[in-house]
Design a binder for these strands. Sequence first.
DNA 1: CGCCGTATGCTTACGTTGTACGCCGAGTAT
DNA 2: ATACTCGGCGTACAACGTAAGCATACGGCG
Lengths: 226, 226
Amino acid sequence: MAGTRRVQASKRRTPLSRERVVRAALELVDREGLEALSMRRLGAELGVEAMSLYNHVRDKDDLLGAVTELALSRFRVPEPSGDWAEDARRAAREWRRLFLEHPSLIRLLAERNEPLRSPAALGPMEHALDILARAGLTPREAVQAFHAFGGYIFGFVMMEQGIMLTGDDPVRRRAHVEMAEAVEAAHLPRLREAMPDLMECDGDEQFVFGLELLIEGLRAKAAARA
Amino acid sequence: MAGTRRVQASKRRTPLSRERVVRAALELVDREGLEALSMRRLGAELGVEAMSLYNHVRDKDDLLGAVTELALSRFRVPEPSGDWAEDARRAAREWRRLFLEHPSLIRLLAERNEPLRSPAALGPMEHALDILARAGLTPREAVQAFHAFGGYIFGFVMMEQGIMLTGDDPVRRRAHVEMAEAVEAAHLPRLREAMPDLMECDGDEQFVFGLELLIEGLRAKAAARA
DNA sequence: CGCCGTATGCTTACGTTGTACGCCGAGTAT
DNA sequence: ATACTCGGCGTACAACGTAAGCATACGGCG
């Protein structure tokens, strides 16, 4: 009887596979955050014991790497517009969209500090370097600009998700009043006059501002050479 | 006898305090990385049992918050030079110095996504906003530029420590050849021509490049208004 | 048809983590 | 002297990653 039930269950179960494991892990992480991902929990999610996952994944680090790559593979290279600046804007926005769609992706990249060499990451890199080459930069300058844009996008989204005071959740609201108190207590005139703008700032608009700064800087550099 | 020894030991032991706990935690984290910081390990470092730490720290999260604040308090506000652009450069470099001196600080900020409202962080913020105001920006623009610079610095150092291919450790070297192989395998002409510059890039120089882009963009914005 | 090697999932177990709880010894106030 | 408080200790528990061994199901062979 018990045997029969077990047979049925195992017949019913669609077999595990690396892809299924990694997909479920990404979904779990997207849904409930990085710390929700434990081997036991992921096993439960798949109706399977924790140790069974190890048939498809070397260890947790391997799993996290695969999850990172899967998330990165969701990057959709935007269509070129003919104008390099517009293309840069589109690519940067697509990166931000990706990071916001997978809020743990930034932490994944930050914690496992493994250089990006997966195929999923190389496509977008090629795309970015192509835009910068079309902007008239030398390969060397293109690499420098790549790091500048990359750093900006990366760091901005990270601040946006953590430190920045955008959004309206109650925890932010509490941070607002605490910060306002601290600013009043100390003598910080610039901060005081900036407080309104610090609080009601819109992430999208802020992001574009810095992006335009970088593009304008690049344009100036190109103009100076010509 | 055992009692006597214990008395001597307890007499000899300098009493624990929140400050001593937090300082030791920061030293440990700086020396051996974030994952080396466990309550037991930190206790051992202080010659004390793990549970004793809880007399001075609510829980580990509280400890991490205090460590973050202590690290942030090591920011040394640079002297003003009279030129806002130069002041911006100096401030940005000081931030980078701080992050490199405390390599786990970025992860601390990223993982506990609590808005910066500690006194240790407000001083540098005031300083940055003051520079941007002296550059002729409105408070609103100053906030936008603050987020742009902040994001860039943050993200750049993060990439530098993790993803970027700077440095010469053997793990990077292996990443180099793996990446070169991947680039050869796929058809990625821009990446291929960029590979040399990607590998031998100098962090300091890269950082300044992006910084100058932002400053130039800001200058252009100011010029356009005048 | 049965048999068997191999892959795949399950069970148990170990060491490490954060931390709740109870104890004790020392210093202080009464 | 006595009682109270407080800081450090020891034990204990749940959750974690994962090593080792066992059991079961499936595909190729007679």
